[in-house]
Design a protein around this nucleic acid. Structure first.
Lengths: 117, 117, 117, 117
DNA sequence: GTGGTCTAGACCACT
DNA sequence: GTGGTCTAGACCACC
């Protein structure tokens, strides 16, 4: 994986893992790689791994069991929440770009419904 | 400027320049920086500068005069065209992401109109 | 192959390949040599190979599949189009030379019909 | 000046000088550069200069006066002859290319008259 | 293995 | 000084 220089690496890894969950590549209850393994997998510093799991944990996506590892929560609505949060991110970024080009929300919505036909 | 590792630098610079034209920071008829200056400005290799201008030229946005420099075309509809093309690009990329998350066009349009309130 | 210093090498190789297609030495659907092989064949730099295929692709003559190679398009009219385009190029270059010598189109046409006898 | 690797340099210089005569850049009666000067001008070997003038002389285009230099002949028809010879060269090269593409003389002549309208 | 991108640096043609 | 071309070689993504 390549990293975007303009955003902290740990956030990019967080986003990557969230995607894998939404997509179903990682399922609720699954064990996530150890910090060491994550560091190897993404070629990052183990400290960065730790930060990644801190963030995921703080977002209620996973929990850590001392000596056992880190596991994806089995929360019913977890995937839905991640999904809508990511959608929100995509949306705001997209709208920011479109507004910069001079488009109004109404026009944009029209473009999308038109696109779908 | 920082570059996103996931897209070719030359395309990112192309997008940057197009934005400046749409926004009016660069006007039709203006001289664009020389390849060498562009290389300095964006901290890229002069060959990459050349590629940037090749792309812009192939898109009908500017023309080049050997030994004189590169100039933005004075086409009447140029700005409008760039604007709608970029919008189209943003849109399709956004929709692709949203569809991957399982959203339908209708839902997405609804999100946007809701956002605007 | 020897190159004419007065024209970019990549354009000369482009012309060479087009000729081979028109002549039937290369057929629609055929795989073109890899960039590296082309570089060896014509004793050029791999970057120059890349540029050759970029041009051919931009002219709709071939398409490229990452990791797979470059293939001649299977367009029905491809060969005819290449043929007439090349003819057009030869013609305009020739006429330019002849006009520079002071010949009129009528005289030139006469020279050709005379030649044919 | 750049030389074509596929033709002897001396012939290319000969062609160059002939062009300058047809174009009027060099006039009948003019003194041509000394062999040494020609060598400097075209960055060629003095022996090549000598060969250039041998050819031009053998074609009746100039004459050499021992100790005085080489002069363009003041022949009335000289320019006309050079002109038609060069035209002939252009023609045959052009026809060769067109024939290779599968064109007949008649078609070619038609293309030219059409072009002229 | 394939193509895609980028850097570094050289040389040329044109103004 | 400007753009245009070319080489050399590196690293990446995809198959």
């Amino acid at each position: 994986m390549k990293f975007d220089n303009s955003t902290p690496i740990y956030l990019q890894v967080v986003a990557e893992i969230k995607k894998e969950i939404v997509v179903g590549k990682i399922m609720p209850g699954d064990k996530l790689p150890s910090g060491r393994d994550l560091a190897v997998k993404y070629v990052i510093n183990p400290n960065t791994s730790a930060r990644v799991y801190q963030v995921l944990e703080s977002e209620g996506i996973c929990h850590t069991r001392r000596g056992m590892g880190t596991y994806v929560n089995e929360d019913e609505n977890l995937i839905q929440e991640i999904k809508s949060n990511m959608a929100e991110e995509y949306l705001t970024a997209f709208l920011k770009n479109m507004h910069a080009l001079g488009y109004e929300d109404q026009e944009i919505a029209a473009l999308i419904t038109k696109e779908g036909k």
